[in-house]
Write a protein that binds this DNA or RNA. Structure first.
Lengths: 231, 231
DNA sequence: AATATAATCGTTATTACAACGTTAATTAAA
DNA sequence: TTTAATTAACGTTGTAATAACGATTATATT
């Protein structure tokens, strides 16, 4: 069958905004760009969409390349296609954001890409329109996290309530009343208390919790409101 | 400067999911596909992204071509890129949804494309993955309309409260308590009552209202909740 | 005058929740 | 052993939102 005539093809790339949380700080994984132009500048991890790949597949592959991780929370954010966004060649980029458990991340791999985790407030200037992508991803995460329990994707299997609260506080850049937070979280029924404690941050130690994955899945679509509006 | 080597270009299209509301029914504007394959099948209005166009620009152009309308509410929905989604040639489609005032729509233009408005519940089978796009658009509109006053984009300058309510009822496919609805809507302060009435649907007639565009803009980002949960 | 639709007013019970107070438990350090 | 720091839990109060009703009034056409 004939192909569409007179249509100029365009390159299609995928860029990943990768969030991680180490229990203290919300971070972004960036790589040093290996090719010209903008060589050695900080950039999102990206790549071109392969021949037999769909967009989600490309994003998964790129994420796997950089982090060694399968089964990561990944969501399409937005497609960016200004004609001049890449000075070399017309490229449309479909941006995805990923939420990963930073502990599962295999550090060896990143040497190849000169990858580094940056605290959100210390992100350097990025190439092309990647700054815009990061901002959009943050906005979307705030929007999503206000209604759905997505932030658990950033946590390790076992985590403490203080860690969880600190995560919410960083996403919304505002303090949360601890007493109301505990109430809301326990009322959601999403957490299963463990017997062990994390004693690295206090004398008393904070109990570990696990996510009840059944309930998490079941409640994901129901409009929760896990945020608080404290000063 | 050298181009990226070994990267296969892909065609980039934009497809528009165009919603309209005639005061009675929420509708979708579809066109009869003019070219093979799937010639004469119903389809979303789409087109390829031009050389000097960004994605939003392409969507605007395509919308203008079909409807004759500028300044339409338009939002990027999702990018679709399965390798086999278009049997002719690998094409990534960026879907946009549009909310238009159906009265402003110029009927002459659509003859060229054999366009037709379909009630939401009477949409025919569409080509390629366009069904999926329509479903995603409906989901997104429900999501958005629950928090932001976007449905006003579908209404003419002057509209009645019964029309507005019927619109919400169709979007959520469930009846709304009229007394609570009026209270909520008037409390929002978004409506300005006119002196005229629409007498086409009742003896008494229903007052026309206009949208307070200042307040609409101001309140758009604040998380409203304009929906009701009546049976 | 009858009638159908539009619009207003009112009530009640429930839920969500922010803001703040208080206390018990735990354990490292003094 | 006592002290201090921290986590975790329970309680209170006031307010706002709102769903689910009931009842009534208004209006203009037939």
């Amino acid at each position: 069958m004939a192909k569409y005539s007179n249509v100029k093809p365009i390159l299609i790339a995928v860029d990943c905004i990768i969030f991680g949380y180490d229990g203290e700080h919300l971070k972004l994984l960036l790589v040093k760009r290996a090719i010209e132009p903008e060589k050695d500048k900080w950039s999102l991890m990206g790549g071109f969409v392969g021949d037999d790949e769909n967009l989600d597949g490309a994003a998964k592959r790129i994420l796997l390349e950089l982090t060694g991780l399968h089964d990561v929370y990944l969501e399409q954010l937005h497609a960016y296609g200004n004609p001049d966004r890449d000075p070399i060649e017309r490229t449309v980029s479909v941006a995805y954001f990923a939420l990963i458990d930073i502990n599962k991340y295999s550090k060896q791999i990143n040497d190849q890409y000169h990858a580094e985790w940056f605290k959100l407030k210390e992100i350097p200037k990025l190439i092309f329109d990647h700054d815009k992508m990061v901002k959009a991803a943050m906005d979307k995460i705030r929007y999503q996290a206000a209604l759905h329990p997505i932030l658990f994707e950033l946590l390790p299997k076992k985590f403490t309530i203080p860690q969880l609260q600190a995560l919410y506080e960083q996403v919304y850049d505002s303090p949360i009343d601890n007493r109301n937070f505990i109430r809301k979280i326990t009322a959601s029924g999403l957490l299963i208390k463990q017997t062990e404690k994390d004693k690295s941050n206090s004398r008393r130690g904070a109990f570990y919790f696990k996510l009840d994955k059944q309930k998490h899945k079941a409640q994901f679509q129901s409009f929760l409101n896990l945020t608080a509006k404290s000063k």
